[in-house]
Write a protein that binds this DNA or RNA. Structure first.
Lengths: 212, 212
DNA sequence: CTGTGTAAAGAACACCTGTTCTATGCCCAA
DNA sequence: TTGGGCATAGAACAGGTGTTCTTTACACAG
């Protein structure tokens, strides 16, 4: 199978993201706007190529009838396990295949699919203490996480500081051999730590604060 | 929560089957034909009912934008209207019977019933700007509110400061003839305002922060 | 009976959306 | 250079599609 052009890759991943975020397929003009393509005919042109190579299917003359063939049918994961507590000075519980089993989880929580957006390895942690106050996260808040070991610059993540034996929530920026941890509160100063002192535990998807 | 009519059950299971068989949601006229309904307006009528009860979601004026809340639409999720934006210096939109109509709301949101806990007059506001940063609420956060005009001491509420013409989110303590507004961040100092200068707009039920 | 609320029919409108047609520019082998 | 395949632009068309408006029918409480 021949390779795809950069534009076709872009279209494909846009469709994937669109379906994940909206729950229904994009129209041709959605794709046009989302991939900054100049004409609908160009989108159609590339969609026909993608279809002929089996990447997707379309029904003629039916709006939003794109189906991706890379098996992705979202079975709304709305039930996430609350696998533990995050607090300064404590290691956070590392998710395992065991804890993924939502039915077996000691504590669980229902969240709108709109929040998880089809992501796979989602779990929740309860925040203990006010040590994350500079990230606008308070005692008792619930943090929704995606289990990943690397994040992109600027993303909010759970960071484990090995030396300090401390977990914290910050925006992460990689700078040569050090890492800048930026509090969400702009009035506060960033923290710099050496690269080998940090371990990414997960990407923050959402914060939920409940008042009784 | 009231039961569904036989026709609504039929529509619901047709949508489910259609998505399963075609991979994309049906149009209103697909439903009309598939359920042998006489008019598109009847389909629309029943879809609005189904949406208001949390069984599905639609995006206004977007074709085939039906999403099913599969699995746990049994009381687990509820649909609340996002009726506006809260920002310093702006009056917040006062909820009316009009804006309660979830089906008519321009924007809406699905939240777990676990968050609303059976409360009735629940609506949502989007936070604009960082003026609530001392309440640990950031730009873009979504605040879930219960529409009340009085709160108890210590509750987090939307407070309208008449003189300053400013809405803010603080914990409220009534002290004789003045009101103490306590930021959630304990490092910051409280604000004192005269009693006649404040109007309670609603009690904060939850804060939801989403990262993309 | 009268009024009110719910449910439904049918039609019409305006916008959405897939499709198609023509024209243009580019690369590369003949 | 020439010609053909590839990719793109822009516009226009026809049918799809969500929405709304008016009218009708029915059940039920006052």
């Amino acid at each position: 199978m021949k390779g795809l052009s950069e534009k076709q890759e872009r279209i494909l991943s846009f469709i994937e993201r669109f379906i994940r975020e909206n729950g229904y397929p994009p129209s041709i003009r959605d794709i046009q706007a989302g991939c900054r393509i100049s004409s609908t005919s160009v989108v159609d042109y590339n969609l026909k190529i993608l279809e002929s190579r089996g990447y997707l299917q379309r029904s003629a003359e039916v709006s939003r009838s794109i189906r991706l063939n890379r098996g992705m049918h979202d079975d709304a994961m709305i039930n996430v396990p609350v696998i533990g507590v995050i607090a300064a000075g404590n290691p956070i519980p590392v998710p395992t295949a065991e804890t993924w089993d939502v039915t077996a989880a000691a504590e669980k929580m229902v969240v709108p699919r709109e929040l998880t957006r089809g992501r796979e390895a989602v779990y929740a942690l309860k925040v203990k203490g006010t040590s994350m106050i500079d990230a606008l996260i308070n005692d008792g808040d619930i943090v929704l996480l995606e289990h990943v070991s690397m994040v992109e610059n600027g993303e909010m993540a759970v960071v484990w500081l090995k030396d300090e034996k401390e977990a914290t929530l910050k925006r992460v920026y990689f700078e040569r051999d050090r890492v800048r941890l930026q509090p969400a509160n702009e009035q506060m100063q960033p923290i710099f730590v050496p690269l080998q002192n940090v371990a990414i535990q997960g990407r923050v998807i959402a914060v939920i604060r409940r008042f009784d």
